[in-house]
């Protein structure tokens, strides 16, 4: 089922012109996939007149655009007029993502373990109910959630941005699949040695499930980094904006300064791309596992 398996049994091709065609097709496709990023970086290095003229290649790389884009909005930490320290978009997002990822690990690992290993009445019914919530479109829940969060006083508050996303059926499912793959004999042996569930989970299951845990951390981090609609509604104050909402207001405010817009888009995208670049194996395998079995 894993992506690795895909590379193992290739169907052999013999005709060479066909092979050339394959390479041509794949390379053209890959160029289309990567072109927007290429154009984004290229545009972020142009002057405004070059952008307006529609020049494809800048005469000189204008790195200063990045500095300008950074200073035009509250990307980094700063002190506001009353001397209050404001973390800025990047630190806001990092804080929200760190909290979301940690809480997600805690709630989802426990629940996934219970569904995979512990026997309790109503387990299947509850698990089915969990899975059913995946069917609910977010359009239905967003209004009641907003009302609930505002009743709790969490609008314009980190809690409102974090707490609703601290559990996910998707990750519970992913981890449960993984935990179920751990042999029963291991648990039986541990049980004879007097090991309880919590201890078995922490000492045996978690060290064996590093790959799955890394996948959950990665996916929930990127999900948190890229989340847009909910923070757009809940974060009213600029001081609380996470990065995507910040980028959106930057885009609408900058209007014609396309080179700055592209510079901002670059530094919003690049951290995730770097992360993906170093962890792509876990990433695609996680996607493939849950994707296929979902």
């Amino acid at each position: 089922m894993s992506v690795k398996a895909a590379t193992a049994k290739p169907v052999r091709l013999r005709i060479q012109p066909g092979r050339a065609f394959i390479y041509l097709f794949l390379i053209i496709g890959a160029s289309i996939a990567i072109f927007p990023f290429f154009w984004m970086v290229l545009t972020s290095l142009k002057t405004q007149t070059e952008v307006a003229r529609g020049a494809f290649w800048p005469e000189q790389f204008r790195w200063y655009n990045y500095l300008e884009a950074w200073s035009e909005a509250e990307w980094g930490p700063y002190f506001d007029h009353s001397g209050r320290w404001i973390p800025g978009y990047f630190l806001n997002t990092l804080f929200i993502a760190a909290c979301t990822v940690t809480a997600n690990l805690f709630t989802n690992v426990l629940a996934a373990y219970a569904f995979a290993r512990i026997r309790f009445p109503g387990k299947n019914v509850i698990f089915f109910a969990f899975l059913a919530t995946m069917m609910i479109p977010s359009e239905v829940t967003i209004i009641p959630n907003f009302l609930l969060v505002s009743k709790l006083g969490w609008v314009n508050n980190y809690l409102g941005l974090i707490v609703p996303w601290t559990a996910s059926v998707f990750y519970i499912f992913l981890l449960r699949q993984f935990f179920m793959g751990i042999p029963n004999e291991l648990y039986d042996a541990a049980l004879i040695d007097g090991c309880g569930h919590l201890r078995f989970l922490i000492q045996i299951v978690l060290p064996l499930s590093k790959a799955a845990l890394v996948t959950v951390v990665l996916l929930s981090f990127i999900g948190s980094w890229n989340s847009f609609l909910w923070p757009l509604i809940v974060a009213r104050d600029v001081a609380l904006y996470p990065i995507q909402v910040g980028l959106r207001s930057f885009i609408t405010e900058m209007g014609n300064e396309v080179q700055l817009m592209m510079a901002a888009a670059t530094f919003v995208i690049v951290p995730v791309l770097v992360l993906y670049f170093f962890t792509q194996k876990q990433f695609t395998e996680g996607i493939a596992t849950t994707g296929l079995k979902g």
């Binding site: 990567i34 980028l247 885009i251 919003v268």
Partner: peptide, 20 residues
């Protein structure tokens, strides 16, 4: 190649939508 094809999926739709 596989990595390149997958790139768009990990980027934020806000940034890549603006680029488009």
């Amino acid at each position: 190649l596989r990595m390149v094809y997958f790139l768009p999926y990990v980027t934020s739709t806000v940034a890549s939508g603006a680029v488009f």
